[in-house]
Simulated assay, not measured.
Amino acid sequence: MASSSHRRRPRPKPDRDFDWRPVRGPLAAVAAVAAVALVVTLAVAFRPGAAAGATGQDRAVSGSASQAVPSTAATPKNPSPKPSPTATPTRTASKRTTPSASVTPSAAPAKRPASSTTGVSTATTTAPAAGRIRPGTSYQGVATSYDVGNGDGACSYGPTSDVMTAAMNTADYETAKACGAYISVRAASGTSITVRITNECPAPCAAGQLDLSRQAFAKLAPLSAGRIQITWSLLSPATSETVSIRYKTGSTQYWCGIQAIGHRNPLARLEVRTSGGWQALTRTGYNYFLSEQGAGCGGEIRLTDIYGEQLTVPALAVRPDVVQRTGVQFARH
C-alpha cells in the first residue's frame, strides 16, 4: 500500500438503489475479499509517478536523467573560454610620453654614443627641453661684429684664446640657456663657420641676430660690411673635451653657485642630490645655478641637455673658482 504521505483517490459515491447492508454467511466472506482486492488495486494504480507498463527500475532511471540535464535557459549561448593555466600574459611596454616641440626639426640626425657612459641615460632626438633654439631648425637674422677682448662674456666662462665665439641676442640667449651652444653660421655667399656662444648681445640686437667676434665675422665678409644677412642653426659637434664643473667664487656648503663648462649640447637643467632627492637649481643670466640655502652643495650633480640626456657627476669638493673635470660628455646628435 502507498505511504501515508500520498493522497488516495476518493471512492465513488454509493448508488442510492444499491443495498450495502452486510450479507451473512459465505457470500459475505467473498464480498469482503473482493472489496479488499479492489482497494489494493486502486492504491497501486493511483500511486504518484506510476506509469502504465513502467517498472520501478524504469522510473528510477527516468528520475536520474531529469536531474542530470541542466535547464537550457541557464546555459549561456557563447560561454567565454577559460584562460589556459600555462599561458604567459603579454606585456605591454609602457610608453614613456615626449612633449611636442613647437618647432619640428626638418631632420633628426643619427645619434652617436656618448664619449663616457658614466651616469648617462638614453638620449632622444626630439629635444624635449629645448628652448627657443631648436635642433634641425634654420634661423634668419643678421650678423654684426664686436671686439671680444680677452674672450670673457656674460656666460662667465672667463678669459679664453678661442676667438671663434659669438654673443647671442637677448631673446634667444634666454637667461643663459644658449651659453655654450655651438652654432653654424652661413652667409649669403655660401661660406659657413662654427662659433660658440659665450656672451649676450643686448638691445638693439634683435631676435635672430648674432654679434660675432671680429675674427669670426671676417671669415664671412670684410669687417667694413658692418652687417650681413645670415642663416644659422644649432650644432652637436665632435669634440674630445669632457664636461667640467666650477663652483662660483664665495661658494661654501651653506651657499653655492655651480656652473657646467664644455658640454657638447646646450644645458637645460642642473640638479643637486639632497636628502629629499634631486633638486633643480635656478639658472642666472650669468650662467651659474644657485643653491641659496646650500642644499646639495658638494654633493652629486645631475646635468640634463636639451635632448633629455642626463649625466650624473659624483660628489665634488666645494672649491671656489676651480675647474674640476668630470670625464663625462653628452652624446652627439
Rank of each mutant, 00 (worst) to 15 (best):
T194F: 10
G308S: 14
S84R: 06
N169H: 06
S64Y: 02
V163W: 03
A203H: 07
T124W: 03
A32P: 05
G53H: 12
F289K: 01
A268Q: 05
T284Y: 01
P202H: 04
M164D: 11
D305N: 15
F217C: 10
A178D: 01
H263L: 07
L210W: 04
A110W: 03
L303G: 08
T165I: 15
G53K: 11
P83R: 02
S80F: 05
A43R: 13
I261H: 04
V185H: 06
W278M: 01
V69S: 01
Q57R: 11
R132I: 14
P202Y: 03
T242L: 01
S251V: 08
A331V: 03
L38V: 15
P83A: 02
I228R: 01
S106R: 10
S161G: 02
L267G: 07
D305A: 13
S106I: 12
G296M: 05
I261F: 03
R325D: 15
S213P: 01
A181Q: 08
T191W: 09
R7Y: 02
A50D: 06
R227T: 11
G208H: 00
L267D: 07
G119H: 00
A167L: 07
C179R: 03
V272E: 13
K82Q: 06
R59K: 10
A108M: 08
A2Y: 04
T92I: 14
D147Y: 01
W255S: 09
G262K: 13
Q310W: 13
A101V: 09
R319C: 09
R325A: 15
G180H: 07
P70F: 01
A268D: 05
A2R: 09
N169D: 15
G294Y: 10
R16Q: 12
A37Q: 15
A123G: 06
R96C: 04
S102P: 04
V163R: 08
P159T: 12
F46C: 05
K177W: 04
K82I: 05
R24C: 04
L303D: 08
Y307S: 13
D147I: 00
R283Q: 03
Q324C: 13
T312S: 13
N287L: 00
S184N: 15
G141K: 06
G190H: 05
P70N: 01
S233E: 03
A218Q: 12
V323H: 12
T160H: 00
T312C: 12
A107N: 08
A50C: 06
Y182K: 14
L235R: 06
H263A: 14
T242Y: 02
V103Y: 02
T118W: 09
G158T: 04
D211A: 12
P76H: 00
V328Q: 15
W278R: 02
G56P: 09
A107F: 12
